[in-house]
Structure formats: C-alpha cells, structure tokens
Design a protein around this nucleic acid. Sequence first.
DNA 1: TCGATGTATCGACAGATGTCAATACGACTG
DNA 2: CAGTCGTATTGACATCTGTCGATACATCGA
Lengths: 116, 116
Amino acid sequence: MTTTLPLTADTTGACCGSVAHGAVDAAGAEQIARVFKALGDPTRVRLLSLIAASDDHEACICDLTEPVGLTQPTVSHHMKLLVDAGLATREQRGRWAYYRVVEGALSAAAQSLVPR
Amino acid sequence: MTTTLPLTADTTGACCGSVAHGAVDAAGAEQIARVFKALGDPTRVRLLSLIAASDDHEACICDLTEPVGLTQPTVSHHMKLLVDAGLATREQRGRWAYYRVVEGALSAAAQSLVPR
DNA sequence: TCGATGTATCGACAGATGTCAATACGACTG
DNA sequence: CAGTCGTATTGACATCTGTCGATACATCGA
C-alpha cells in the first residue's frame, strides 16, 4: 500500500496542477485530502514543527518522544503517516532514523486546492 | 462550542504568528490542526474547490449536493465544519445559504506551521 | 556471538468521524 | 394563513483513528 503521492515539492511546471478553471475531481480530492489529513492531528503538527525548528532541520524518534509526551511506538506511527503523505522524509543512519520536513509539499497541496 | 479561531485571513502583523525560531506549542498545534482537519476529507476538499471554481465564487447547498453525490444533510454538515474552521463563510440570503471561500485562511495556517 | 539500543510492527481498545433517514426550522408564495 | 422549498439538526450506525503495551527487527559495541 502506501501509494506514492504525485504531489511533491517539485511541482512540475504546467502552471496549475488541477484541471484549471475547474474544480478538482474525486481522485484529485482524495490525494489532496491525504496530505491535509496528515496535518489534521495536533501531535503531527507539533512533530513537523519540532523538526522544522530543530538545529539541523532534522530529528530522530528519540528526540521527539519527550517533547510531545507520547510513547515511542505512537511517535513512530505518526511519523510514518507524515512520510506517507509526502510531508517528511526518513533516512536511516546507523541505529537512528532521521526525519526531515519536505519543503514546499504543504504549499503545493494548498495551491492545487485553491489555484488562486 | 465552536470556538472561533484567531487564525483568519487577516493575519495580524507582528511578523510570525508562532513563537518564532521555536516550535508551536500544544495549544497552537491544536488550532492549526483544526484547520487542516477540516481539509482532511475528500468531500470537503471537493466542496471548497467547487465553490472556488464557481462563477461568482459562491454557492448554496443545493448547488453542491449533486456534484459530490451526497445527501443534503451530509453536505450541510460538511459546510458547517468548513465554516467552523474559518475556511468558508455562510451568508443567509432569502431561502438560500450562500457559502464563500475565505481567501488566505489556508495559507495562513500553513505559514504558522512552517514559518519558512 | 551476545547484549544493548533505537525503531517498527502487532493487537487491542476507547473515542472520533462520515453517512444516512427522519424531522424540525425559516423564509417565500399563493 | 397554509403550503412549499431550502437548509439545519437529531439519532443511529459502521468505520476510521489515536493511543498504548508487548514484541519483533536492525544495528552497533564488547
């Protein structure tokens, strides 16, 4: 599962990603909603914010459990959702898994919803 | 209930709404998540997109039920959530209730999450 | 190889969420 | 005033979601 989203930071040119002058279709809405749903939980908002505000703009699970006050499995689960939504990346480095925020992924989703 | 969000289109100056250089706190995360949660459902994404793509940038419930293929009570329920989240406005005009998209509300939420 | 450490997965459970049918509310029309 | 029409609310239900404890997996050090 975990269908890769075609909705990433590198918004392929072509002006507007959506149908242009029209509303998004059912499939497109599902893709967009998946990104926003990932941010529909306060914990995940804090996690993403914590990583973005971190020194090297990256953090491992062990750095995140204490600030949010949740157990390690729960934090790991939330980070998986953020990665699946294309809002974060995961990089295994030794024993630790480092997560980074995907710049522009959020604004790309917002753009495809209301093209302006 | 339905606590009014201080997070509207008219982002009060003061540069960055968040703590600046720091991550958002628990309360702030809850506010931000409420906006994104409203967009975490494909139906609501379509509804907002339909309104934005409409001729006069507004629509009543009767205009929306058919495109999304859901019953009137369900559409009304979704629109209420969008209004409560500050993403849409409701204006009673005669028998009809006209909904409009609040410009900038979404990008304001995104900004307060990742200030750049 | 064995133990320790960081992370992911599994199973379970309470609570939230999306949907509908039925019904109530409000405003126009005759 | 009574009927009609558009919308909101209520109650019910199946499903999804967030959380945890227990446990499995993977990597490093001795």
